[in-house]
Design a binder for these strands. Structure first.
Length: 490
RNA sequence: CGGGGUGUAGCGUAGCCCGGUAUCGCGCCACAUUUGGGAUGUGGAGGCCGCAGGUUCGAAUCCUGCCACCCCGACCA
């Protein structure tokens, strides 16, 4: 087994942390709750950004950038929004340091800000304050803007990628003339996220809506995609909010309609974050390290030469150069690891740890036989194949791996999603066989709250296109018309 | 914010009860031999023992205070 990684079985949480560090994705920073995203981890984020950005643009959105700092007064304009974020805001009070004469750098009390600035935890307020100036008429609508940014939420407890004090994300903020159009936008973006998760992250997700309790602060409706991690806990992987006219009213953003009537603008916002990297790690990886979906892997194929003498390496290198060209022509990223400072075994272990989907090992034996050894990360199987048509075979295998890990995750979710009708059974399953629990709920916030207090399970979502059926609430026995999805969550 | 834990070389650690200037492994550097699953040997470099006080001839070790981070909970993408 891998050196230095505790097994998933033994301590899932420790396994996750070890993996992030050992696979060179990120490291802890000197500041509590913040992390340094290292090049290998960041390149995954860059790949995610590239794909999502294209999807956003294909659906008519454009990028812009709004300030990191938001005047404190903006937050008090939307009541439920401030309530949701007040407890976790970083506040800037001064703008200068000075030397205190004893060699210490201290805050210069004379440099106190008239109005404190908030480091954005999300940008609805500053954006809607801006939109006020952009919108007068229905002709100015819709506004379909996205921004790539960092945000800060001063969380009590943090976890690498899953919940850090500062994180990277994108936030879309759109403005519409009608509620229908805004709702359609909200749903469209949820679909974009779901497609991205399933086709790129190889992560099956449930599309659904949050209960009023779990809604975004300031939203009328929150749509989400929920995924199941390998330890049976749920992870919210993306959200899309229908904000109604709440922010338009808070920031007084009105427009004149075709009918010459004055009305408030309808809004949406939607976002995914670097948390997706956490989702990626937790859903596919194993005790030997990361397992990355080929479509997002920074290195898709690694080539390891095995040789005794320099002329052997030269032969191998000449071949690898040719065949790398073929791979690059197919848009497959390949790394030739010809370091002579590490032996092949060490390299094998390293790339397994880093989740490189395919490994090609070539030695003199292969050069004589016209073969290579091909090892896939997801199944950890090896085969010796002909050099003839290798690039094509690799292209095919990468697709297979992408499919296979998706299917594996899907099977896992299916095996760990259970219908439950009895509260005792519900509690037992949460402890003994964690996963999604599909159960009837009477629709009240009180019941939801009580279940949460008693079991730590929350309603992850009410799945879209949910089957309607007559049933009884698992806690109160009151009538219910549909099942909702419960789980303990990250 | 409550509970627990840990701060000693780049990383992981021993030493702390019982005070005498720091152990081991990995990694690093040099050379040689190696290379089809995490190489071996020889030599070498690297430490304000978290910070600040105190006790003492002498503190990693004892006392006081502080700080930081990690883990488990409540809160959240």
């Amino acid at each position: 087994m891998s050196k230095g990684i505790i097994s998933k079985e033994e301590d899932y949480s420790q396994w996750y942390n070890d993996l992030v560090i050992k696979a060179d994705m990120a490291e802890y920073s000197p500041v509590r709750g913040c992390m340094i995203i290292k090049p290998y981890g960041y390149s995954i984020w860059e790949k995610m950004q590239a794909v999502l950005d294209k999807m956003f643009k294909d659906t008519g959105h454009v990028n812009a950038y709004f300030p990191l700092f938001i005047p404190k007064s903006f937050f008090s304009k939307e009541a439920s929004h401030v309530e949701g974020f007040a407890k976790e805001c970083a506040v800037i009070t001064h703008y200068r340091l000075k030397n205190d004469g004893e060699g210490n750098i201290v805050v210069d009390e004379d440099a106190k800000l008239e109005e404190e600035l908030i480091v954005r935890p999300t940008s609805e307020t500053i954006i809607w304050n801006t939109y006020k100036g952009w919108i007068q008429s229905y002709r100015d609508l819709p506004i379909l803007v996205n921004q790539w940014a960092n945000v800060v939420r001063w969380e009590m407890r943090t976890r690498l990628f899953l919940r850090t004090s500062e994180f990277l994300w994108q936030e879309g903020h759109t403005a519409h003339a009608t509620a229908e159009e805004a709702i359609a936008e909200t749903e469209q973006m949820l679909d974009v996220y779901a497609e991205f998760a399933e086709n790129w992250l190889a992560l099956p997700v449930v599309r659904g809506r949050k209960t009023p309790n779990e809604r975004f602060a300031g939203a009328l409706d929150t749509y989400c995609i929920e995924a199941l991690m390998q330890d049976g806990k749920a992870l919210q992987a993306g959200t899309s909010h229908f904000l109604g006219q709440n922010f338009a009213k808070a920031f007084d953003v009105k427009f004149t309609s075709k009918e010459n009537k004055l009305d408030y603008v309808w809004a949406t916002s939607w976002g995914v974050s670097t948390r997706l990297i956490g989702a990626l790690i937790m859903s596919h990886s194993d005790d030997a390290g990361l397992v990355l979906p080929p479509k997002l892997a920074p290195i898709q194929v690694v080539v390891v030469p095995i040789y005794k003498h320099d002329e052997e390496l030269e032969n191998i290198t000449a071949y690898v150069k040719e065949f790398s060209k073929e791979l690059k022509a197919k848009n497959i990223s390949v790394k030739f690891d010809n370091r002579d400072t590490h032996r092949p075994g060490a390299k094998f272990a390293e790339y397994e740890l880093k989740g490189v989907p395919l490994r090609v090992a070539i030695g003199s034996r292969d050069m004589q036989n016209g073969t290579v050894e091909l090892a896939r990360r997801d199944t950890k199987t090896k085969e010796t194949v002909s050099q003839e048509g290798l690039a094509g075979k690799i292209e095919q295998l990468l697709e297979d791996i992408q499919q296979n890990i998706y299917q594996k995750a899907l099977n896992f979710r299916a095996a760990n999603t259970r219908e439950v009708n009895d509260y005792e059974e519900f509690k037992r399953l949460l402890d003994e066989e964690p996963g999604f629990l599909s159960a009837h709920w009477d629709g009240t916030a009180e019941t939801e709250q009580r279940i949460k207090e008693e079991t730590k399970a929350t309603i992850r979502c009410i799945p879209l296109n949910n089957k309607q059926e007559v049933g009884k609430c698992i806690l109160t026995g009151k009538p219910s018309t549909q099942r909702v999805l419960f789980a303990r969550a990250y």
